[in-house]
Design a protein around this nucleic acid. Structure first.
Lengths: 237, 237
DNA sequence: TAGTGGTCTAGACCACCAA
DNA sequence: TGGTGGTCTAGACCACTAG
């Protein structure tokens, strides 16, 4: 009788083999080309690509069409709940910045009201940004704020922190937040904006921010690269 | 000159096509076989499989070797921070249960102490379980608790709630928790335990539980299916 | 046993990058 | 221009499920 464990698929054994080869390598250093690996391990390029794809999803490798496949920088970036992205990055000695994709005034429709889950001002301001750490895109977020916030772009370009800007110039202070965290898969737009690849695992975070009176004053949808981000939350019962 | 946007890959167009076909379908109903889809859309099975793979990762479809590919049940399961898995499931009218994989006493080594990030009792109890919702595996978790907790298996088999058991029988009350949430990719063991497939996106959650005095009394590593789980956190500044 | 999804092959052509 | 990764093909065989 056959008592041997069923062999893992070849692409999986290759994946773990590659993980070992890469463990002590310098971040940014290239690994052999897919065709070279296929030849070395006597397999097909398809199988090599399946192994590499999962290591990319895990953030172990990164690849660029026309250039090659490289050992990814390791350190994931923590972002704490209810603190400013800007401050958190600074606390970890990372340069944070953001690229404003658009600021516009919108009228609340049924969909928006239901997403806020609250009575809303009829006029909202929508801020769409890409958040970067050390120049690398980490997140894409769209925030909805009540009212028409004139001059917001100027203030944001000054320091980049939305929460600090809201507090200093508009009298909006977020005292409490509700977040949900789930996974999603990168589509073409996400892949472009976050410089990752289609099919890559992402973290989708929805936040509802409340002021000291418990009134909802923020609704934000954020998409983070799953390979470079860790969400941190602390709660008292 | 060519002003047309570059066409999305064929597998991506097929993916969105399939998403539409499936949107109004009954959960659990089968979709055509991969060979049938390849023929219908005049493409290869490889391309069909790439499209289906991403829909599986998103929790839109599920498939079983030998049986077929099916429309997945939609509802993701929320689990709130710092509340009992058991209670949360009940609040959402879901049957929760757990399968105990093992309960053992271990001696704290350097690795464990550093993960706890604190001075530890030298004797720990390790509880490994699979958590199920409506009979479907949702999470795999291993909890470390300080001391030798005799009779734990019996108490857990009684009601299933670890937090309730700790409070009622061992005088351990968790008053505060720190969680980190990140993505990972399913390997062979995760795929088996969670009845998902290799390469599937998972949520990896580490929790450190503290009692009212701020003493760490729990360290848990949980792996949740990314397609059926949403993490919820509420924080006051 | 027939049919399904899971793995794998050996190619092909395209899009992109650097020299 | 040559080499890289990205997409796609048309098969093959295996592992598993169900009738």
């Amino acid at each position: 009788m056959d008592n041997s464990a069923p062999a893992a698929p070849k692409y999986y054994r290759l994946k773990e083999e590659l993980r070992g080869l890469v463990r002590d390598a310098e971040p940014g250093s290239p690994i052999p080309t897919e065709r070279a690996l296929a030849s070395r391990y006597e397999t097909s390029r398809t199988t090599v690509r399946q192994a590499i794809a999962e290591l990319v999803a895990e953030g172990v490798l990164s690849r660029t069409q026309g250039k090659g496949t490289f050992v990814a920088p390791s350190s994931p970036t923590y972002v704490r709940q209810l603190t400013s992205f800007t401050d958190d990055a600074a606390a970890q000695d990372l340069r944070s910045s953001s690229r404003i994709l658009g600021i516009e005034h919108v009228t609340a429709d049924a969909s928006l009201v239901s997403r806020f889950g609250m009575p809303m001002a009829s006029e909202l301001t929508r801020v769409e940004r890409v958040r970067l750490i050390n120049g690398e895109p980490l997140a894409h977020e769209a925030a909805y704020l009540p009212g028409v916030l004139d001059g917001l772009r100027g203030h944001l370009e000054g320091n980049g922190s939305l929460y600090a800007t809201l507090s200093a110039h508009y009298g909006i202070d977020i005292a409490e937040a509700e977040d949900t965290v789930e996974t999603m898969v990168a589509g073409p737009e996400d892949a472009l904006l976050l410089k990752t690849e289609m099919g890559a695992p992402l973290l989708l975070i929805h936040r509802r921010g409340l002021d000291a009176e418990g009134t909802p004053v923020e609704w934000t949808r954020s998409v983070f690269r799953g390979d470079r981000f860790r969400f941190f939350a602390r709660t008292r019962r």
